[in-house]
């Protein structure tokens, strides 16, 4: 079989750190007449851990789907390392969909063996490390897992790749506290190399606010702010109070 991988899945990271990992310029999207995203613009520098915050229905998932190339924006630009996002850029990013599901008939181990073949940037060593950290049972069938167990397996799949951008859509939705903590821990562990950029959409501000170094706020499809978190704190505001100021 010819090599089906995209040639650019392994962007040289050193060169890339100079450019913003994610950049949106005036992104607009309509779904059947409804304006879902209305001129959203922001930048996430490489190596940071950014939070995408906003109430339900703000357009967070749609924005992430654009970044992951599920579909193009109606107008504006969504860029990953200065090149437009699209299905052909799936190699540079690792995506955890909101309430996504893996094939239920597979065992966790079977899925991971498959994933090692499916993802060209799979790291066996990282997977072994994360299996311990996230406490995943390889023999268990995915269909019989609890929500927390499946969420951890999905995150494990995302993080075992070496893609420089990681996009997580609601990694904590419906997940128990212990799973949340181990998920947050795993995310931090991955970030410390400074080689990867995270964009995480979440409602769980308290669990995550100490992790973010940058937050992007959107509501009703519009951009409502993009802040450096330490700068916010230096001004005496927390992520939570900032969120309240904007949305409450």
């Amino acid at each position: 079989m010819a090599d089906m991988r995209y040639p650019d899945f392994n962007i040289p990271i050193v060169a890339a750190t100079k450019a913003p990992a994610i950049r949106c310029v005036d992104v607009t999207l309509r779904v059947k007449k409804k304006l879902v995203l209305d001129g959203v613009s922001f930048e996430i520098p490489a190596g940071s851990l950014a939070g995408l915050l906003g109430p339900n229905g703000a357009g967070k998932s749609s924005l992430m789907r654009i970044l992951t190339g599920m579909f193009p924006p109606d107008s504006g630009r969504a860029e990953l390392f200065c090149a437009p996002a699209g299905p052909e850029r799936l190699g540079v990013l690792s995506f955890l969909p909101d309430r996504g599901q893996l094939p239920p008939y597979l065992g966790a181990g079977e899925w991971l063996r498959l994933a090692a073949g499916l993802y060209p940037d799979w790291s066996e060593a990282r997977m072994e490390e994360l299996i311990v950290k996230l406490d995943v049972d390889r023999g268990q069938r995915i269909g019989s897992m609890s929500r927390g167990q499946e969420a951890r397996l999905q995150l494990l799949t995302c993080l075992s790749r070496q893609a420089p951008i990681i996009i997580l859509d609601e990694p904590f939705a419906g997940v128990d506290m212990v799973s949340r903590e181990s998920i947050a821990q795993a995310v931090v562990g991955e970030l410390a190399d400074g080689e990867r950029t995270f964009l995480i959409a979440t409602h769980d501000i308290r669990e995550m606010e100490n992790l973010f170094d940058r937050i992007v706020l959107i509501g009703e499809g519009r951009m409502l702010g993009c802040h450096d978190v330490e700068a916010l704190r230096a001004g005496g505001r927390s992520v939570e109070s900032c969120y309240r100021d904007v949305f409450a």
């Binding site: 065992g107 966790a108 023999g139 268990q140 069938r141 995915i142 019989s144």
Partner: peptide
Amino acid sequence: SFGFVYGQRA
């Protein structure tokens, strides 16, 4: 989930 349909162990 298909816990009923699929067995616990693969």
